[in-house]
Simulated scan of single mutants.
Amino acid sequence: MYSMYPMYYHVPSPYIHNDYAPNNQRSELRKYQPSIGQIITVPPTSAAFKNGTRVFIHDVKFQYDNVRNEWIEYIYVVYPRVSSNGSCVIEARWVSVYDLDGTQTLTR
Rank of each mutant, 00 (worst) to 15 (best):
S3M: 15
P6D: 13
P6Q: 08
Y8A: 10
Y8C: 11
Y9L: 13
H10C: 06
H10G: 14
V11R: 06
V11S: 08
V11A: 07
P12W: 03
P12Q: 06
S13A: 15
P14S: 03
Y15S: 14
I16E: 06
N18L: 13
N18A: 09
D19K: 13
Y20A: 13
Y20H: 09
A21V: 13
A21Q: 11
A21S: 07
N24Y: 04
N24W: 13
R26E: 15
R26F: 12
R26P: 13
S27T: 11
E28Q: 08
E28L: 10
L29K: 05
L29F: 13
R30T: 09
Y32S: 01
Q33E: 15
Q33Y: 09
P34G: 02
I36T: 05
I39R: 15
I40M: 07
T41L: 15
V42M: 04
V42H: 02
P44M: 02
T45Y: 01
S46D: 08
A47V: 12
A47S: 14
A48D: 04
F49S: 02
F49D: 02
K50R: 15
K50S: 14
N51G: 09
G52L: 06
T53L: 12
T53W: 03
F56R: 00
F56S: 00
D59L: 03
D59P: 01
D59V: 00
V60N: 01
K61H: 14
K61W: 07
F62K: 01
F62S: 01
Y64Q: 09
D65I: 03
N66V: 07
N69Y: 07
W71H: 12
W71R: 11
E73Q: 03
Y74F: 11
Y76E: 03
P80I: 03
P80A: 04
P80H: 03
R81V: 12
R81W: 11
R81I: 10
R81K: 14
R81S: 11
V82Q: 12
V82T: 10
S83L: 06
S83P: 09
S83D: 10
S84C: 08
S84H: 07
S84W: 08
G86H: 09
C88N: 10
C88Y: 09
C88E: 10
V89I: 14
I90V: 12
I90A: 05
E91F: 04
A92D: 15
R93F: 03
R93T: 09
R93W: 08
W94H: 02
W94A: 00
V95E: 04
V95G: 02
V95S: 01
V95M: 07
S96Y: 02
V97L: 10
V97P: 03
D99S: 05
L100P: 02
L100F: 05
G102F: 02
G102S: 05
T103K: 03
L106F: 06
L106N: 11
T107F: 09
T107K: 13
T107P: 14
